[in-house]
């Protein structure tokens, strides 16, 4: 099995001198292709920070980050922007859609900046919207969508550039349990089918069975890694 994402001895500190806080301390995580990993832990344990580091949004104070064998921790801002565009898909806590773009344009915009040919982009947009049950919302603005629909658009957007790594920060926070589960199962299925890697931060213990592994963070350290008995997400 190929290893997609490797976090090696990652340390993150904020501030200097007396006010220095260590958010992450010597964290080692690796995610294989086709693996869907959940990160959980109490508030302030560094879950989101870890996700930001994995997503090249935050440069760690120490340690090394590898994606598909490429070292990411030493990239300059411009290079990490390009990396995010082509290799990483983000799903934020709240959907964070662009208010003035229609649903289909939210996706087409990614295709545009990633320079995906038009025809291919259109097809992929249709496929993704279909898959997430958003076809009838294609020409709506985010303001006219429900919270769940917005989050599903955000997920479609994250998949749009066909990323190697998908990072989700509490993607189900704004969804009801049934819808949340459905969304996460869709994510898990995609990860399996296309041999991608996904990391999801979540508090929702009911979702753990969909994931391959659950990593528990506490005070910036990995305290527990738990293998989950994989169920077939389609029939659960």
């Amino acid at each position: 099995m190929t290893t997609k994402l490797v976090l090696e001895n990652i340390g993150v500190e904020f501030g200097e001198g007396e006010g220095k806080t260590t958010v992450l301390d010597d964290v080692n995580v690796s995610v294989n292709a086709g693996e869907f990993v959940a990160i959980t832990g109490p508030s302030g344990s560094g879950k989101s920070t870890l996700l930001s580091v994995a997503g090249a949004l935050l440069t760690p104070s120490r340690g090394k980050l590898l994606l598909d064998g490429q070292v990411l921790s030493q990239l300059n801002p411009k290079e990490s922007t390009t990396m995010r565009l082509h290799q990483i898909g983000f799903i934020f806590q709240s959907a964070h859609l662009i208010p003035y773009l229609r649903v289909k344009d939210q996706l087409l915009y990614i295709a545009k900046i990633a320079k995906i040919p038009k025809q291919k982009a259109k097809k992929r947009t249709d496929d993704l919207l279909n898959m997430l049950g958003l076809n009838h919302r294609k020409n709506h603005y985010p303001v006219n969508l429900s919270g769940g629909e917005r989050q599903r658009v955000a997920i479609a957007r994250a998949w749009m550039n066909d990323p190697e790594l998908l990072l989700a920060d509490e993607p189900t926070a704004s969804l009801d349990a049934a819808r949340g589960r459905e969304v996460v199962e869709t994510l898990a299925l995609q990860v399996k089918q296309q041999q991608k890697a996904a990391v999801m931060v979540t508090h929702d213990t009911r979702l753990f069975d969909v994931c391959d592994r659950v990593i528990t963070l506490s005070d910036g350290e990995v305290t527990d890694i738990e293998k989950v008995q994989l169920k077939d997400p389609v029939h659960s």
Binding site: T81, R84, L85
Partner: peptide
């Protein structure tokens, strides 16, 4: 600003 932040996060270049 938040919008610009999102756009940057999903890979939009500053020049764009």
């Amino acid at each position: 600003l938040t919008q610009f932040g999102i756009l940057k996060a999903i890979g939009t270049k500053v020049s764009e």
